[in-house]
């Protein structure tokens, strides 16, 4: 049953996963080509000085992609469950409901994690060839909130999709949008979110509660 559920989730999300992975690699390649172009025009020192003196991470193009992937994966995975009330069938599987939801969410989280790690690794490997590991670490710390926003976006999307009533979906969407906004619109300075990383990780875990709550409400018959 365990592997069957994972297979079911994989079949639902594989297209979005590969699309997200390809898009991530293309965006990473674009960021690298942009840096290459700057190096050829102004020299590699200009990259260092831009980072050290102007707080330019040179990878801003990545900013919204992890969030888009997280939301897309959440929709691809959870929306089919809600169409024609298929979630009822899922919940009738001979597997504890809460464990089932945890397994579903874990599948999505692992897929986002894989995409994020691959993209980060590609950028980090290139950066290490042109700049000091300390600077590469700063670039990674700058990107980390964007990837965490992908996980958070996924969790919120899952909770909203699994919710049975439109009224509650809208009510869940409003704080979700506001919280996700804080991850992008507050500062463009490198490593500005360092003090908030642990809070975001705890928030991701906490927000998972909303998906379980949506399921309980669904089982109680709170559906449109």
């Amino acid at each position: 049953m365990y592997s069957a559920i994972i297979l079911k989730e994989w079949l639902k999300t594989r297209r979005v996963f590969f699309l997200g992975l390809i898009l991530s690699l293309l965006i990473a390649a674009y960021a690298i080509l942009t840096m290459n172009s700057v190096i050829k025009t102004f020299g590699v020192v200009s990259i260092w000085l831009n980072m050290l003196l102007k707080d330019a991470s040179m990878v801003d193009v990545v900013t919204y992609l992890p969030l888009a992937i997280g939301v897309a994966l959440g929709v691809a995975q959870m929306a089919p469950e809600m169409s024609h009330k298929r979630l009822k069938l899922t919940l009738h599987l001979p597997y504890p409901n809460m464990k089932l939801i945890a397994l579903m969410l874990s599948t999505g989280i692992i897929e986002i994690f894989v995409i994020s790690v691959i993209q980060m690794a590609v950028i980090a490997v290139y950066d290490l060839t042109i700049m000091h590991p300390y600077l590469v670490g700063r670039v990674m710390l700058t990107m980390l909130p964007w990837y965490l926003a992908g996980f958070l976006g996924y969790m919120f999307t899952a909770a909203i999709c699994l919710e049975g009533t439109w009224r509650m979906r809208i009510l869940l969407a409003l704080p979700s949008i506001a919280i996700l906004m804080t991850l992008f619109m507050q500062s463009g300075v490198m490593a500005a979110y360092n003090r908030m990383l642990l809070i975001i990780i705890l928030l991701i875990i906490w927000v998972a509660v909303l998906s379980f709550g949506s399921i309980i409400r669904f089982k109680e018959g709170l559906q449109d």
Binding site: M98, L171, L172, L174, P175, A178, I179, T182, W206, V207, V209, L210, F212, G213, S214, I216, R217, E220
Partner: peptide
């Protein structure tokens, strides 16, 4: 779990509204 869900939702709203309002 359901109570925890409502508490979570309310706390999220308090956190967001204390920033947005």
């Amino acid at each position: 779990m359901k109570r925890f869900y409502y508490i979570t939702f309310t706390l999220l709203c308090i956190a967001v509204l204390s920033w947005v309002l």
